[in-house]
Design a protein around this nucleic acid. Structure first.
Lengths: 128, 128
DNA sequence: GCCAAAATGAAAATGGTTGTCAAAATCCTC
DNA sequence: GAGGATTTTGACAACCATTTTCATTTTGGC
């Protein structure tokens, strides 16, 4: 058996960064794995559910997964002109979110943070 | 009617938080506006493109828009079960966003923060 | 008024993700 | 080890937000 989940997890481990479910599926097929798309999705979800992989959404709304290597949670700084994205860490925000949540009796707190700005390359350029 | 874009922008201004394109569309129709879903999408994109509205993705991968408020800036703490919303201020976050932005050479920094959690009334203990 | 460019919108297409459900694999019980 | 319950799997359809298409309408200039 070796549940397909392990295979999926394995494939993800072999990848450097984040991969979409479709990517993982395609790669597994390339390697000759006999697996269905549905199963890949389910495996990924289960893995994410169990905390074995990290999930995040791309700007396209696509979910991408990464084998849990660095559990460093981070956010994105996005240039509103060129769309360039920089990954940023924000321990202060994490703490703030937690604090604000429990302060109001909320539990299982998660948060979404998006920082928009105009990057250096676009800033000096004339606007409009 | 000059451009439907103004109508869309207007509708968005009347909303407190983030609204999905579909929401905006539904609301406009309720108000009797004669507009198509396609146009709402296009207007929202143009608005976002011009920096008149902020965009972000929900956990569902749905795009939500908010008119650029220059008023009192605050964030929302949303219960993922009952949808209850609490407005919260986060000076620490504001500073963090600014710092992180300029640290990477970004200017005109804005940010969106949404905190999700389970409120006291919907505590996990009751989940069955 | 007329023509050209832009805007509009209804419907169809797109595409990632989820649901369905029957078949196959696995586990448990005897 | 056999038999049946349970879980997993996967092909395919269903979903649904978003995008594209394309013909029609509106806007603007002359």
């Amino acid at each position: 058996m070796t549940t397909r989940r392990d295979a999926v997890h394995d494939t993800l481990r072999q990848s450097e960064g984040f991969r979409s479910a479709q990517d993982v599926y395609a790669e597994m097929r390339l390697h000759g794995a006999k697996i269905g798309l549905t199963t890949v999705y389910r495996a990924l979800q289960a893995l994410a559910d169990g905390g074995q992989v990290d999930v995040l959404r791309t700007d396209d709304g696509e979910s991408v997964y990464r084998a849990c290597a660095t559990d460093t949670h981070h956010h994105h700084l996005v240039c509103r002109r060129c769309g360039r994205t920089v990954e940023v860490a924000g321990p202060a925000v994490e703490r703030w979110a937690e604090a604000v949540g429990s302060e109001h009796g909320f539990t299982e707190i998660t948060h979404t943070v998006e920082v928009f700005g105009t990057c250096a390359s676009c800033s000096p350029a004339r606007v409009g």
